[in-house]
Design a protein around this nucleic acid. Structure first.
Length: 500
RNA sequence: GGAUGGGUGGCCGAGUGGUUGAAGGCACUGGUCUUGAAAACCAGCAGGCGUGCAAGCGUCUCGGGGGUUCGAAUCCCUCCCCAUCCGCCA
């Protein structure tokens, strides 16, 4: 979310930022809306001023018993009122237009972010570790897992469809072990740029507003899973629809039909619209029943713990002394993968459900750039301790997410695929999410100085992909897998996973 | 699912139609006192938007939305959330 005032003063810089994202200039359109909005506000406020002062006069006139003067003032107010009413309506409409325009644009990249179209333009900043030299032809993780009898995609498909997996035995345990191992690193004492994160266990189901705060909504609803359900009161529906059979919507469709379809397909907007229409058309005595015809529920499954963790500071003002706030959580993540049909269809790389240990930092405006380096280091530390070779790249603009100003991806080496694959993504969002969330902090030296926080998020790490990396890097020629030393305490001392 | 009670400033909490943007307290900031600190005392202290070089002025906001009224935190409607009790239940 951009600051309209900033756009006003820096329209060229704004359009330049969009251009770097490959977007057409928007400042002219936005400033036109802004101009319109400000003119409207001015007239609206003038009318309100008139109404307010006249109302006070009325109070005085009535108190002093001057009914004639009061009556005259009341006529004046009545006139102002109609101006106000239509003005408020117009303002709601124009506010929505401005919000829509501002909230669907991606964040501006930092100056040092490389230009580029896609992942081939990302720039490697460092590599770590030795790729294992295997004396045999390495297998991919799903071959290893299936051969061990511990990774079952067929049964998962029976239960839930494509892009799910059932892990068994030592692999199921390894998921838990990896997560605990990572959490212990991040929640350890704050030292040498590591640790200091507070462990959280947040909800995995959230409101629209929460998704809006971190930028998943309104643009990326297709990537998310929804949890929803609406119920119709059938008896009342039958009674009312028989009593008032003729109510039609603007297309000449029966409102009752709209309502029952909307309830069947859980479309809250159409439900509300139909109910309003019906309510207006029935007798007074039935209005209440109409309102209570449906009951319902609509939420979203989180695609990452970034969503609930970052939104913890939504609609709040924190003290500067409490920053940086560092939080970590191991949660399930749910992604529709709508745009990924046909990509990574085999194996565990891309699933509808996976678990991840997430890192989130809420910082002051001065801290966020350093925090990005620190956070990336915390994520890399996990791979170092597991002795998994990786490289860190800085994403080019075209590969960067909607809310990010700069992103490092950490890519782990996968011998079975003979390539590096993303296992973590650490981003600094500046005040982009904070504006959407209205999350602010009070400056230490000046209590009146209230600023937007900066937010960062990063995987520390994706648990399933870490398991894949362990399996492929630690595989032996007999198809068994050596458990990395650091993980053994979490696996009850188990050293090797072999077919039983 | 049934019954009741609630949602007010950074926090707690008063306030049922007329200078109430809102008493009081806590927290915070400045000052007095003190060797220093604490305590005590004095003063300041909501956010957004518009306008202005600024001081300021205007306007909106007491869970969200709509309505009644000349005037709403206060009345009405609706949605959401929270709490307690009962029922059910991992």
């Amino acid at each position: 979310m951009y600051d309209i005032k900033w756009i006003r003063d820096n329209s060229d810089a704004f359009d330049a930022a969009l251009a770097r994202r490959g977007l057409a200039p928007h400042s002219a359109d936005i400033l036109k809306i802004d101009e319109e909005r400000r003119t409207l506000i001015q007239t609206l406020q003038d009318a309100q001023t008139k109404r307010n002062s006249a109302s006070k006069e009325i109070g005085k006139a009535k108190a002093s018993g001057d009914e004639a003067a009061a009556q005259k003032l009341m006529d004046e107010v009545a006139q102002a009122k109609s101006t106000i009413q239509s003005g408020e309506e117009q303002q709601r409409e124009i506010d929505a237009r401005l919000r829509e325009a501002l909230s669907t644009l991606p964040n501006a990249p930092l100056d040092d972010v490389p230009a580029g179209e896609d992942e081939s333009d990302n720039i490697e900043v460092r590599t770590w570790g030795e790729k294992p030299s295997l004396s045999f032809s390495p297998k991919q993780h799903f071959e290893l897992g299936e051969d061990l009898g511990l990774m079952d995609f067929d049964t998962a498909a029976k239960l839930s469809g494509a892009r799910f997996v059932v892990l068994k035995g030592a692999l199921a345990r390894m998921e838990r072990a990896i997560a605990a191992f990572m959490l212990d690193i991040h929640t350890g004492p704050e030292k040498d740029g590591l640790g200091g994160y507070q462990e959280m266990l947040p909800p995995a189901i959230v409101w629209d507003e929460t998704m809006y705060g971190t930028g998943q909504l309104p643009k990326f609803a297709d990537d998310l899973f929804q949890v929803q359900g609406f119920e119709l009161d059938r008896d009342e529906f039958e009674r009312l629809s028989k009593k008032y059979p003729e109510i039609q919507d603007e297309y000449g469709v029966l409102a009752w039909f709209d309502l029952i379809m909307a309830a069947t397909y859980d479309d809250k907007n159409i439900i509300d619209k139909s109910l309003k229409l019906i309510e207006q058309s029935v007798d007074e005595e039935d209005r209440e029943s109409v309102r209570n015809l449906t009951s319902g529920f609509k939420r979203w499954l989180i695609p990452t713990a970034e969503v609930p963790l970052t939104n913890m500071v939504r609609e709040s003002i924190v003290e500067e002394g409490d920053l940086p706030m560092r939080m970590t959580a191991w949660t399930p993540c749910f992604r529709a993968e709508a745009g990924s049909a046909g990509r990574d269809t085999r194996g565990m790389i891309r699933q509808h459900q996976f678990s991840k240990v997430e890192l989130v930092s809420i910082t002051t405006q001065d801290q966020s750039l350093d925090e990005l380096e620190r956070m990336t280091g915390c994520a890399e530390e996990v791979l170092k301790r597991l002795e998994l070779p990786y490289r860190t790249v800085v994403l080019c603009i075209g590969d960067m997410g909607f809310g990010a100003r700069k992103t490092y991806d950490i890519e782990v080496w996968l011998p079975g695929q003979d390539m590096y694959r993303e296992i973590s993504s650490c981003s600094v969002c500046g005040d982009f999410q904070a504006r959407r969330m209205n999350a602010r902090y009070r400056a230490k030296d000046d209590p009146k100085d209230i600023r937007y926080v900066h937010t960062l998020n990063g995987s520390g790490l994706a648990v399933g992909r870490t398991m894949i990396a362990i399996m492929e890097n630690y595989q032996n020629d007999d198809g068994s897998i050596t458990v990395p030393e650091a993980l053994r305490p979490y696996m009850g001392g188990l050293e090797t996973i072999a077919a039983g």
